[in-house]
Write a protein that binds this DNA or RNA. Sequence first.
DNA 1: CCGATTTGACCAAG
DNA 2: CTTGGTCAAATCGG
Length: 291
Amino acid sequence: MGTVCFEKISREKMVKELLKGKKFANQLQVLLQKPFEEDGLVSAEVLVVKILRSFTQTLSEVSSSSRSSDDLDQNLQQKENCCNVDSNGHRRSADSGESEKRLLGLKDKRGGYKRKKNSQTWAIVSSTIEDGHAWRKYGQKEIRNAKYPRSYFRCTHKYVQGCWATKQAQRREDDPQKYEITYIGHHTCRDMIRFSQILTENSDLKWSSTAAVAAAASSHYKEVTASTYQDLSDNLSSLDSIVWENFVPLQSSDEPEAAADMVLPYKKITCSHHSLDMYNDFEHFDECQFF
DNA sequence: CCGATTTGACCAAG
DNA sequence: CTTGGTCAAATCGG
């Protein structure tokens, strides 16, 4: 019904976004030919941010337009789900009732959770689990027909900032030194601790160099495993996750209102549609300069 | 003491 | 039913 119209709009958006990216890349190319900044010209770092943003935007469009039409229902379900999780009390429910049930020999009633179905996922192969983000392990599972168990991680800031990014890591059978890491959903948090670490470690270079740092970090990632459209997004995403999402409250492409129910003083800034519009229009960053 | 990890049970999906 | 993903009590460790 309305999906045709939606797809058309979405495609237009993608093309527009890609064109923007191309334009910024062209500008950057010109800029790189003359390393000295001139007045009135946007700086290289701002252009890099714009380019990254364009790709991120497009990728999230691609993923959202490939979703099924009962999206809204699923989003609603997810929303309900995160409410449940929260009202149960983050981490430890510490419910005396729960332990009582245990003692009484009743089944403990966990869950009411749903599996993530329609989040962006992408996979990389890396020699390390580390990727600059703060993860917390919440499970490990033996996988059938697999030699090594799979580890499950979620963002450390899940309950504080409502960040629903998760990842899974599994040692490769052919090369046990390496891990196959699957990322599910983008970070919506701002990991300021890691962020400041990166800055202080490279204090003389200012932030434009952070891109270089991230690029160096992402060069650890070699082989790329394609899942859906990931062959396009893998390196970008790893770069993305280190550089971009640490700086700007990137919209949550999958669960935009996931954090809306959380009690956050700055939730309106990070999650409201209003601010999204603001960040979609990137001219603001020309004045911002971040620091 | 408090946050992270371990680990077995629970749950949804196929 | 089986299996992968998640929860949360127990445990670890700074």
